[in-house]
Amino acid sequence: MRESDNVPLLEVRGLVKHFPVKRNLLGRATSVVSAVDGVDFDLRQGETLGVVGESGCGKSTTARLLMHLIEPSAGTIRFGGKTVGSAALPLKEFRRQVQLVFQDSYASLNPRLTVEESIAFGPMVHGTARTQAQARTHALLERVGLDPRRFAGRFTHELSGGQRQRVNIARALALQPRILVLDEAVSALDKSVEAQVLNLLLDLKQEFGLSYVFISHDLEVVRFMAARVLVMYLGRVAELAPTEALYTDSRHPYTTALVGSLLSMNPDRRTEAAPISGDPPNPIDPPPGCRFHTRCPHAEPVCAAGVPGLGMRAQEHWVACHMGDPMSGHSKAPARAA
């Protein structure tokens, strides 16, 4: 790699996206949804970063912000040390490096184009000649496990869900990107096909030296795929830790509840009580302080008063919870170091 290993491939700092939901007569937003509200993370070369959270926590918005499909309200994204959208890294060039695979394999392919046309479109946008783009398309189809002779001339409605998602992966790879953002890419597939596609993704990662941002609500799948996991709650980062640490030694009550909701293969580990109850609060009017305090079993007045910062609590283990911060005044916080 040209860049030193110290520079992460992708650096996301203070990413914010507010969607106006109500406007006054002059078009000014009077009420906003803070879908993503201050997200920071790094993606390292060759790693898979899992992103988990409930519906509506801002996972998909984060994915679209990463791609600059929607403009962030605030925050910066740096790719290989260069700010995206600056003169050093124009948007079009960045988009060749980062590609997205959507959850809905049908809606993400143009029904009027053949598989070949869909995949070859990207390279041709970037100036590849048609014949060359077609050759690359056929090689990629072969690589994702679809015989180009049988599939290149087909339309999307003639393919199964798994086949379509393979086409979507091939389309994303056609620009030879460094990063794939997989937004619930396997969630709509049935379990056996899901496993095949996951294994394909692992192979492709090795072969093309890719890094993945793997967004899912399925904790088991994330555990299988990711080296590090980012837990989001209502547009904020709750916890960011190496996968095993997160699953065995979670520090944020929300993560603990999520991990606790996993079905266990061990009959001795039965859980009776629901680990977490209720719905997430309305993101138009999020609770003050820690956004999780309305559902947190350990909530104290301090949680509603102040926003917990994302602090490193162990090796590579970042948590945004007052209970981990000796300075917070939470009764369960560790004693202040002398």
């Binding site: 499909l69 993400s108 143009n110 946008v125």
Partner: peptide, 19 residues
């Protein structure tokens, strides 16, 4: 989503409309 995907591949508005 396929229009989003076309945007993500760096295509401009005119090309996306046409294709």
């Amino acid at each position: 989503d396929f229009v989003e995907a076309a945007k993500a591949s760096g295509a401009g508005a005119l090309l996306i409309i046409r294709k």
